[in-house]
């Protein structure tokens, strides 16, 4: 029995478009904040992971590439990658790097240093990204774009690597947003059931 297609089954197109747009104008990176806010709102207000379950464009994209284009080896993920230690450790690391990026944005905002037009991949490799015109906005707005797009591109690349090595949606196992929203839901459920 084939399941009925919904509008949200095509959100992978939005994710792919988002990644492509960043190559033309880095300011589009701001749209990616929705991928942070929406799942947290679902978890906080609804106490569910509907975003991961239905609306995550990245998960769908990885599924399309892994199954549709057969780019996945479909092997089982190693147990250490799905362990709580790794999942929560990666969440802490990811959030630390996120706040570090926010601090860099603040430094540009307060004129401590100027705009750095680079994308940092895997929090290490600096890629010059000077071809996008950011003169129409304040430098801190552009700086946030570079930082946020670095996070989004790095996490997408990690997702692609684990998709190729293991099952298509292996990224979902250690996705920081997925881990965070699952914890919110579990805590929410615990507090409501103990009342």
């Amino acid at each position: 029995m084939k399941q009925k297609k919904h509008w949200y089954d095509y959100l992978w197109i939005v994710t792919a478009t988002y990644l492509i747009l960043g190559f033309f104008n880095i300011l589009f990176a701001w749209i990616g904040i929705l991928c942070f806010i929406i799942p947290i709102l679902f978890a906080l207000i609804g106490g569910n992971k509907h975003y991961c379950n239905h609306y995550c464009g990245r998960g769908q994209l990885l599924e399309r590439l892994g199954n549709g284009l057969r780019l996945s080896s479909h092997r089982s993920i190693p147990s250490w990658l799905r362990s709580k230690w790794f999942r929560y450790g990666f969440l802490v690391f990811f959030m630390t790097m996120f706040f570090n990026m926010l601090f860099s944005t603040y430094l540009v905002f307060s004129n401590v240093h100027g705009l750095r037009e680079i994308i940092t991949l895997f929090w290490t490799f600096k890629v010059p990204w000077e071809w996008t015109n950011t003169s129409m906005v304040s430098p801190w707005i552009a700086q946030f774009s570079f930082g946020f797009y670095s996070l989004m591109l790095t996490s997408t690349l990690l997702g692609l690597i684990t998709m190729a090595l293991y099952k298509p949606r292996s990224w979902c196992v250690y996705c920081p947003m997925g881990t965070m929203t699952q914890s919110i839901c579990q805590l929410r459920h615990k507090t409501t059931s103990s009342r």
Binding site: K49, C52, N53, R82, R169, G178, T179, T181, Q182, R188
Partner: peptide, 24 residues
Amino acid sequence: EECVACGSCLKACPLQAISIFKGS
């Protein structure tokens, strides 16, 4: 118990026998 509630199984199940319990 190690389920991460990603929902991949929801779409795969031909009988809609799977659901995510309170995001957990």
